[in-house]
Amino acid sequence: MGFVDLVGTASNYVQKDLGLTDSQANLFPSLVFFWFLIFSVPTGMLMNKIGRKKTVLLSIVITAVSLFIPFFGSGYIPMLLSFSLLGIGNAIMQTSLNPLVTNLISGDKLASTLTFGQFVKAIASFLAPIIAAWGATTVCPTFGLGWRVLFVVYAIICCLSISLLAATPIDEEHPDKASSIKECIKLLYRPFILLCFLSIMCHVGIDVGTNTTAPKIIMERIGLPLEEAGFATGIYFIFRTAGCFFGAFILRNISPKIFFGISAVMMFVGMLILFTCNTITAIYTGIAMIGFGNSNIFPVAFSQALLYSPDKKNEISGLMIMGLFGGTIFPLAMGYAADETGQAGAIAVMTLGVVYLLYYTLKIKTSK
């Protein structure tokens, strides 16, 4: 699932290689969220027809194809095609993989398992820029690959994953009754499902929003250049990854509701710090608290939705993954707010999302 995060690193290298403008280069990451909106719900229906394991295998095959395209052409159009297929494959994968896990794990342990999956996913986010830089500056230029060795490494892992999963026997539940897209969307009329959907939108919006805004806050308040302020994004990822790792164990010992509440409160305190503090240490502290708190929001909300409607796991998964489109909505709203009031406006938009998550905490159900 984490392979999709290479788009941020790769788009910078593509922009440099092809001499693209910022607007042209920014089209690459925007494609990711677009395909989540389009493919998430249909994937839920596809799982009903061919099963969860086959759907996951299909998603990895599509991802592998996307990673091989740059070797046949590295122009603007081939790269757009590559990143589009990467987004499509990831949308299908995130929709189908989580329900497949429910065939192995259930109850409160599900949230813990999904959290550990997010930790493993974060490894790809960390490794992408490291592998690309290694390829661009050391051994790999000799072979004419340069930074594109990143695609080689991830393509090999894809092929290995296809082989291992295909050879692993998994007893799936009987496929859910076939549903139409309209019937899937109508599940949002169930109040608790809608609450889960909105919580995932808030989680992703805060995630993308913090990554985008954190360096700007430091530049605005402290006056540091972007090269130094950019370290704030690293702080966020470090603590988000740590939160996923520790959350996998914490969730095995305490109620998801309690841990979710602690996480939401931690994020709220972090937002207050960003609102009020003007020192670099305090700002880093606020960013770290948001990163750690936001690390476990997705698995808890996702598992809550799956456990609430066990007879509609495939459709529910599609709806929840569609909520990742929040990563497009929040930054747009934050941009308009920041234009009017500075970065405090962007923080205010994210804080509204945190307030909603505090409210959602009260609605979380505990397993019997």
Rank of each mutant, 00 (worst) to 15 (best):
G2I: 06
L6M: 15
G8F: 15
S11F: 11
S23G: 08
A25H: 05
N26V: 05
L27H: 05
F36A: 03
L37D: 01
I38P: 00
I50L: 01
G51Y: 00
G51V: 02
L58W: 14
T63Y: 14
S66Y: 05
G75D: 11
I77S: 05
L81C: 09
F83N: 01
I88N: 03
L97M: 10
L100C: 03
I105S: 00
S112Y: 00
G117P: 02
F119C: 04
A122H: 07
A122C: 07
A122V: 01
A128G: 01
T137A: 10
V139G: 14
L145T: 05
F151V: 13
V152D: 04
Y154F: 14
I157D: 12
C158S: 04
C158A: 04
S163K: 13
P169W: 14
H174S: 08
A178S: 14
A178L: 11
S180H: 11
I185L: 08
I185V: 09
Y189L: 12
R190C: 09
L198F: 06
I200S: 02
C202Q: 09
H203N: 10
G205R: 02
T210C: 09
N211D: 07
N211R: 07
T212R: 01
P215C: 04
P215Y: 13
I217Y: 06
G223N: 14
G223R: 10
P225S: 00
P225N: 07
E227C: 06
G230C: 10
A232R: 08
T233Y: 14
G234R: 01
I235F: 12
I238K: 08
F239H: 06
A242V: 11
G243A: 08
G243R: 08
C244R: 12
I250V: 15
N253E: 10
K257E: 02
K257W: 02
I258K: 12
G261Q: 11
S263Q: 07
S263C: 15
M266S: 14
F268Y: 10
F268V: 03
V269R: 13
A282R: 04
A282V: 08
I287V: 14
G293S: 06
G293E: 01
A301K: 08
S309R: 15
P310H: 02
D311G: 15
K312V: 03
S317G: 14
S317W: 13
G327T: 00
T328V: 15
P331G: 03
P331T: 03
M334I: 08
M334C: 09
G342Q: 02
Q343V: 06
G345E: 07
A346D: 03
A348N: 01
T351Q: 03
L352S: 13
V354N: 01
V355I: 14
Y359D: 03
Y360A: 12
T361M: 14
L362W: 11
L362P: 00
K363H: 12
